Simulated scan of single mutants.
Amino acid sequence: MIIREVLLEDAERYLQMLKILDEQTNFLMFEPGERKTTLEDQKNIIKYNIENEIPMFLMEVEGKIVGFLKGVRYKCNRMNYNLHIALGILNSHRGKGGGKALMNKVDQWSQNKNIKRIELTVVCDNEKAVNLYKSMGFEIEGIKRSSFRLDGEFVDQYYMGKVY
């Protein structure tokens, strides 16, 4: 397993992996077939993130992209020490330490970039993800009521954070 920063030449394989994830999990933002990102869009996203020091990490196994962790970083001075993250791993590679490896990578990156706080949201019923985040030092800071639609029902999300 290799955890590394995304490169521009990863755009097509990364986008394909995201579309597979859309089919495999209900816990990420897009429903199957909803993602309209083109290859050109994905290249522009990667380029923007590289140029603006916004983390995008890939998990690669035997040359195949099987997971990701990406961040959103505020530009304003009052909040630019915060990083909001999202993580996803293909079903075939869950439970093998990749989530922890991706989280360790973003921890290392954040400390080198003077990030003071990492935050995320996670569906309350996603116990595996919640347990992973807790094991990495995240705390539940609140609940976003009815903030995510899952199988036609509105569910709650935890708002979790980690401060260095």
Rank of each mutant, 00 (worst) to 15 (best):
G98N: 11
K128S: 08
K128W: 14
N77S: 12
A101C: 07
K105G: 03
D107L: 03
Q111F: 05
D125Q: 01
L102S: 05
D125H: 00
V106P: 03
A101W: 11
N126I: 07
K113C: 05
Q108M: 03
N112T: 07
Y81A: 11
N82L: 13
G97T: 03
N131S: 04
L87W: 15
K113A: 10
I115G: 02
N126K: 00
I85T: 15
N131M: 06
N104L: 06
A101Q: 07
Q108C: 01
M79W: 12
A101H: 12
L102E: 03
W109C: 08
Q108H: 08
D107V: 02
S110P: 14
L83I: 08
D107K: 05
G97A: 15
R94I: 05
N126C: 01
N82P: 00
D125T: 01
H93Y: 15
G95A: 13
N104W: 04
C124P: 00
C124Q: 07
K100W: 10
V122Q: 12
N114P: 01
N91A: 13
L90T: 14
R94K: 15
R117N: 12
K105M: 06
G95C: 10
N126G: 01
V122C: 08
M103G: 07
E119L: 02
S92E: 05
E127R: 00
Q111D: 02
I118Q: 06
K105A: 08
G88K: 15
C124Y: 04
V122T: 07
K105N: 03
I85S: 10
G99V: 05
H84T: 09
A86V: 05
A101R: 12
Q108Y: 01
A86I: 04
L120D: 04
V130S: 10
G88C: 11
R78M: 06
V106S: 03
R94F: 07
